[in-house]
Design a binder for these strands. Structure first.
Lengths: 332, 332
DNA sequence: CACCTTGAGGTAAGCGCTTTCCTGATACCG
DNA sequence: CGGTATCAGGAAAGCGCTTACCTCAAGGTG
């Protein structure tokens, strides 16, 4: 590896001069030296050592992102928003896939901390209450006391800035829609019970049910398509009189559609998140849209824009919207 | 930020001892000191500065990944494979989204180089020939001369290790399938003409066409669903006698399905990549499966496992397989 | 012409950590 | 009991870079 010293020697200047030329510092330098140094850089294929730079400058440039799984379209879209804003600010984004393992979340927080990132965005539902969850919040706090910034997406926090999708409201919209269509026996394919996202969306659905004097038949799955299919199959078998199903995300709704096809049943289905796939399945999925890219963008903005010191954590709410398609219809 | 020196002072030891204890070096240390140091670490919430560590150890730990767009399911799946292997080896993965801009690819190569990553995986189709492409290969070579490792996915290279999906063969399989079903007028929705992936898949399709004495009606799109829909609409309008369409990826095939629905036409459609969505659209998509996760895994293995010095670049081929579903049928 | 700017470049002190070598002290041997 | 391993720990030299500070010479003043 060519170092700055190599470049300087080759150009016959000091490392200070070489550094200044390469970084375009404001210090004036003769064109003569400038060309010599740049020539040396090119010949030696010199690339500055970012670690040494970070150490010497002690300025933080990168930002870290914690997501459950980038290959999940939900997080893929959020990530896209995060990246857009970060890149626009010239920041390097380090994406960490937690694979939904709380332990890995903790590891990654420390790793990002160690890498001196300027900010960390934690995306994805938290757990209703668990040791790992409190531990996570502790580490996030520790990171913030060292001058780092934290923004969370869809996860409650009373210490960090947060952008919260209207999960409860979205659940209500879905429920309201189904009940207004005249459905009285509505099943719910929920996510893992321990997740706040599940709890919030379910709460909205329950609020709608109560408003109409109904109860819900809830079964828990894991937010995956296949999990949704299995849950739907069970639901269909257990509750023969159901006329509608609300799934707490689109993947599970798609699974439910598939289950219905194999069972030869035909209920109304509502999804959640309005992923791209929603309009391409048959019947096209009625779903609660959450502007995920925007969610990511706002979170990154919060993360990069330091709040006035001493102010309380900022919270932004992102509204949900019901997109009506062909998978829900009035009960006959 | 607490530093190692702070910890050492607090524990009343030298930084050398503190470092050894924290890193679990083999040097023996009394339990007395060990507990004191660990206590100090906890109290000060000390997290070692990764940049300083890298600099001092000068060992490379992270690996970089260049992908066009993580939120594209094609790359999301490859990325998942890459991450699995990297994480299993205890490596940090830095994912860089090039947003399909060649200039950004160059930038990121340098950035990863600067960050002293051990290896870089470049995923995604290259360009048939362009200045940016040769420049990219030059920078990759420069990175390799400094001891870095490079592996490319689905991109030809005569200097670096590569894992190549059988794009040509896959195209052939799709074509063969369609012609065997008796289709004589087959349209193709291709990707951007400048991409090697497009060229390879198309070549396979052409080989099948020639074998059956047919020609193809090709139209180029951009590998996105909406692009595919637009291209299909045009194709249907221009060629009223078409009975089948091959799309060079599933997203565009889904778009084609949608176009057909709005035009009220009903042709056989074959996709490519066998993304999860393929089985959830109606009709379920016949597609050429590429084991993308495996593609990623193999590439990361190549990247992390240094070849015997002086040996030629390794190349692994990943086979394609035709998955028959309901979107293709015999011509009547 | 002595004095002060100013310009152009070099010197060297860190940034936070690892690790080689070194120092005392203690234990062990013939 | 002198001599040598052995052990626990410290001193300090970097890793590659940035930057505050210094030097030297040339040009500008009164």
């Amino acid at each position: 590896m060519a170092t700055l010293a190599d470049v300087a020697r080759r150009a016959g200047v000091s490392t200070a001069t070489a550094s200044r030329i390469i970084n375009g510092s404001s210090k004036p330098v003769t064109d003569e030296l400038r060309t010599r140094v740049l020539a040396a850089v090119a010949e030696l294929r010199y690339v500055p050592n970012a670690h040494a730079q970070m150490l010497a400058r002690s300025n933080r440039n990168a930002v870290g992102v914690l997501v459950h799984d980038v290959s999940d379209p939900y997080f893929a879209e959020i990530t896209r928003g995060l990246q857009r804003v970060a890149t626009a600010h010239g920041r390097l984004v380090i994406i960490c896939n937690t694979f939904r393992e709380p332990a890995r979340e903790l590891e990654y927080i420390d790793l990002l901390h160690a890498h001196q990132v300027a900010a960390i965005v934690v995306a994805g539902s938290g757990y209703l209450s668990s040791d790992a969850e409190t531990e996570l919040h502790e580490r996030m706090a520790a990171f913030e006391t060292t001058g780092g910034r934290i923004a969370v997406i869809g996860r409650h926090s009373h210490t960090s800035d947060a952008v919260l999708p209207a999960n409860e409201e979205g659940g209500f919209l879905a429920g309201e829609h189904l009940f207004e269509l005249g459905h009285t026996a509505v099943g719910v394919i929920a996510g893992p019970a321990a997740l706040t996202t599940t709890a919030d969306r379910l709460a909205g659905l329950r609020r709608a049910a109560e408003a109409h004097g109904r109860t819900l038949r809830v079964v828990h799955a894991d937010f995956t398509r296949d999990g949704g299919e299995a849950a739907a199959t069970k639901l269909l078998a257990d509750e023969p009189d159901l006329t509608a199903v609300a799934a707490l995300n689109d993947s599970m709704a798609v699974g439910a559609l598939s289950a219905m096809r194999t069972c030869g049943r035909n209920l109304s289905v509502a999804g959640f998140d309005d992923m791209p796939i929603a309009r391409d399945v048959t019947p096209a999925l009625t779903s609660v849209r959450l502007p995920l890219t925007e969610l990511g963008e706002r979170a990154m903005q919060l993360a990069l824009d330091p709040p006035p010191p001493g102010s309380p954590p900022r919270v932004e709410h992102i509204r949900a919207e019901l997109i009506r398609r062909e998978s829900t219809w009035p009960v006959s």
